[in-house]
């Protein structure tokens, strides 16, 4: 417990204390800095988009991994974990090799906002897949067969029977993915170019405040990041519950 406090709780508390040390002033000053504000907007906006994409793609990938069978599926299962295990800086380099300046595809994403999107999509890939997959495995195909026997088409079965069961898992994965998205740093360092107002993300802002010795500003941006992550986790949890309840009532 002491170790946990020394390692996690006290340091995180220190950030909040440091940031509040100058009262609201520090926040106001830091957040009125247009460069910081742009960074936050970009980070949150992109993370939201990526999370939305992940909710769709992640569910589809999980579905294919659980219900489909074809040669090479085990390999695909392994591939899902690569973004999680790969060092983030290497992930940046990996993406740079295909989508960078000498891209063989002619896709020059480096130093653009697309690169930010790409990097975040890469590192957050496993989250929704890995939360939905076990739920799908536990789910009885009997239920789907029953729905089909009652005359429901595949689309209706999916929407009315399968999806409601998956909703909590999808949202749980989404909140992890969003939290990871807004905090991403390593993969973006090389890929995004960190152009102020254009491709600089929040973590990079924190880093440059820190390197400039302005720890108070760094702490206040960090606090904003923590609060946004917390808000996202809580609100996604609420949405998931509400969706589940509504389906329960109507279905």
């Amino acid at each position: 417990m002491i170790w946990f406090s020394l390692l996690v709780l006290i340091p995180l508390a220190a950030i909040i204390v440091k940031a509040s040390g100058g009262g609201w002033h520090t926040y106001a000053d830091t957040l009125s800095n247009s460069q910081t504000l742009d960074a936050i907007k970009l980070t949150v906006g992109t993370s939201l988009l990526v999370t939305a994409l992940n909710m769709v793609m992640g569910t589809i990938i999980a579905w294919v991994l659980v219900r489909d069978r074809f040669p090479g599926k085990a390999l695909l299962d392994l591939v899902i974990d690569i973004p999680f295990a790969l060092p983030t800086i290497v992930a940046g380099l990996v993406l740079l090799s295909l989508y960078g300046a000498d891209s063989p595809l002619g896709l020059h994403f480096a130093n653009t906002r697309s690169a930010v999107f790409l990097a975040i999509a890469f590192v957050t890939l496993p989250f929704v897949v890995r939360t939905v997959q076990p739920v799908l495995e536990e789910m009885e195909t009997d239920v789907e067969d029953a729905a089909a026997s009652l005359g429901a088409s595949r689309a209706v079965t999916f929407r009315r029977v399968v999806l409601p069961t998956l909703v909590p898992a999808i949202f749980a994965g989404a909140s992890l993915s969003f939290a990871r998205g807004i905090s991403e740093y390593g993969s973006l360092v090389l890929l995004s170019g960190n152009l102020p107002h254009r491709t600089e993300v929040t973590s990079v802002r924190v880093m440059s405040y820190l390197e400039g010795g302005d720890t108070a500003a760094a702490a206040s941006v960090a606090t904003v990041l923590l609060v946004v992550a917390l808000l996202a986790i809580v609100s996604l949890d609420i949405i998931a519950r509400r969706v589940a309840r509504r389906d329960g009532r109507n279905g």
Partner: peptide, 13 residues
Amino acid sequence: SVSPVVVGLALVL
């Protein structure tokens, strides 16, 4: 769900 940079910052503080 905490940014690595923030982790570093926290420890530094």
